[in-house]
Amino acid sequence: MDELTKENIIKAGLCASVVITILILPVIVVWVGSNGIGVISWEFLTGRPYRFELGGIFPQIVGSIYLVSLCSLLGAPLGVASAIYLAEYAPNNVITQTVRFFTETLAGMPSIVIGLFGLEFLVYYLQLKTSLLAGAVSLSFMTLPWTIRASEEAIKMVPRGYRDASLALGATKWQTILKIVLPAASPGIITGILLGMGKAMGETAVVWLTSGSGLEAFVPRSLRSPTGSLTMYIYLLATQGHTSESMSRAFGASLVLLVMFMAVSVSALIVRNYYLRRLGPR
């Protein structure tokens, strides 16, 4: 067999693996969509769950939105600040390497471990109870390292020339960061925050342990209220419901969750593609 045939065979193999990878997402989306679309109704979207598998999922939708928004409100500023330090100030020494290592470690921390920690530290030790606040803070522990990583990459992609030009005009480092570096990096940073929101939205284990059981019939009224989430709702109905009614509701909730998740993720990618195009000609 000559080299060219061999190369073509290998290319075909590579393509096959790519096809499998690309297909996973559409298969799941179509599967959920076709099974879930029939359940979607005004009552389902605006009603409250009752008797386990009946009613709607309004409190869960709102709960998920609250959790995710509060999570990024708490985590994003901290993540961006950390990224600025790591990209612009951090000296190359043991302390910085340690900080980097533990940031990576936190990124790899199993969500159930973060959930356990949230349960022990926030819910019991700080007495936040099983609540919106405990859930959102725990989620922000989970997304923080991802925000840091995305923001640091975005900051490092800002051409050095911008910084030099600003400094040479007599701007301080801090002015340069605020007025030049951050605006130039902002699309990348926003993409990172949005992808983090997507992750938080799809997270189950953390909210299970820290924010609520999932079947809450009420929209959370305060930071201390137990808060339901779509993911917990889906989990409960899929694993503990045994009727077709509960399965179809699990599909309906999955569809709503996927639509929300895709909206966040796709807007993240749109922001970034815009960014890449803008940097393109340089």
Binding site: V18, T21, I22, I24, L25, I28, W31, V32, L195, G198, K199, M201, G202, E203, T204, T231, I234, Y235, A238, T239, M247, A250, S254, L257, L258, F261, M262, S265, V266, L269
Partner: peptide, 23 residues
């Protein structure tokens, strides 16, 4: 396109993948 798909896939709710496995 593939990179974008992969990045979205990282965040796909695991409970939905689990549900897919279940059903």
């Amino acid at each position: 396109m593939i990179k974008s798909t992969v990045e979205v896939l990282v965040g796909v709710p695991s409970v939905v993948i689990g549900f897919f496995g279940l059903i």
